[in-house]
């Protein structure tokens, strides 16, 4: 198989240094602009139906693109967030695209000189954390190597953000908990705890991580106890 691309390597190289969500998003966006053939990038959170927030945009054009989509409730990043599937538009002025996003395509043409747009969802199972949006003034797709890199980078970015948001105090060490991406028990336990506490999947994961930290245990061991019904989360437990 191919080697990891430069953007993914850059992201994996980030040391966990207490950067907040915004600083992290800035580094992810910058890594994309440096490593891929794009002119700008933005990272927005689109969680919990209507709560939308652009964490970072590398330049005013990237910011306009995010604002337009949120205002019009239409566009590449909205589709990526809804479907959990990357949306690649080599040329927004192409007829097929103007039909797909009639209002958005026209608005982008009026306000910017952007031609190509690539929206990569930041997905954690059923949960969409946000979207990484890339744009270029010159039309054309990403090369296969660039696209692979962008996908792996988005996947890494999703885990980093998830890590941040379920561990706001940076207490639990290692920035990507490798268990997170792989272990069925962690996902199953997340589902169980979200019912037990009537919270979102993200919050359920945060609670499990906090519990693991307080009791000096591994997240996966806590998850196993939840799945085996040896541990039930309640409102008032630590």
């Amino acid at each position: 198989m191919n080697e990891l691309g430069p953007v993914t390597r850059e992201l994996l190289g980030f040391v966990r240094d207490g950067a907040d969500d915004k600083a992290l998003a800035a580094r992810i966006c910058q890594a994309c602009v440096t490593g891929l053939d794009v002119d700008g990038a933005a990272l927005s959170l689109l969680t919990a139906t209507d709560a939308r927030q652009t964490l970072w945009a590398t330049d005013p054009v990237a910011e306009v693109l995010e604002d337009l989509q949120f205002t019009l409730n239409e566009g590449v990043c909205m589709d990526a967030a809804r479907t959990g599937i990357p949306v690649l538009v080599p040329d927004l002025r192409h007829h097929a695209e103007t039909v797909r996003w009639p209002v958005f395509a026209v608005a982008v043409g009026e306000r910017t000189a952007v031609a190509a747009l690539f929206a990569l969802p930041l997905q954690w199972g059923a949960v969409n954390l946000g979207v990484l949006d890339l744009y270029r003034f010159v039309p054309g797709g990403l090369s296969e190597a660039q696209y692979l890199d962008a996908l792996a980078a988005a996947d890494t970015a999703a885990l980093m953000l998830l890590d941040h948001r379920t561990d706001p105090g940076n207490r639990f060490g290692g920035f990507i908990d490798h268990a997170l991406g792989h272990r069925a028990e962690v996902h199953q336990a997340t589902g169980m705890v979200l019912v037990q506490l009537a919270v979102s999947a993200e919050d359920a994961l945060a609670r499990m991580r906090a519990h693991a930290f307080v009791h000096r245990r591994l997240l996966v061991d806590v998850a196993r106890d939840v799945v085996a019904r040896r541990l039930v989360f309640t409102e008032d437990m630590s």
Binding site: Y147, L148, L151, H187, A189, V193, V195
Partner: peptide, 28 residues
């Protein structure tokens, strides 16, 4: 016309969603 990795990624993410949903149902 999309590349393989994307299909794999989407499939794997679906798998995570299914595990999460199994947990919800197991509890409910």
């Amino acid at each position: 016309g999309e590349v393989l990795t994307e299909q794999l990624q989407v499939a794997l993410n679906s798998r995570v969603a299914i595990e999460q949903a199994k947990g919800v149902l197991a509890q409910l």
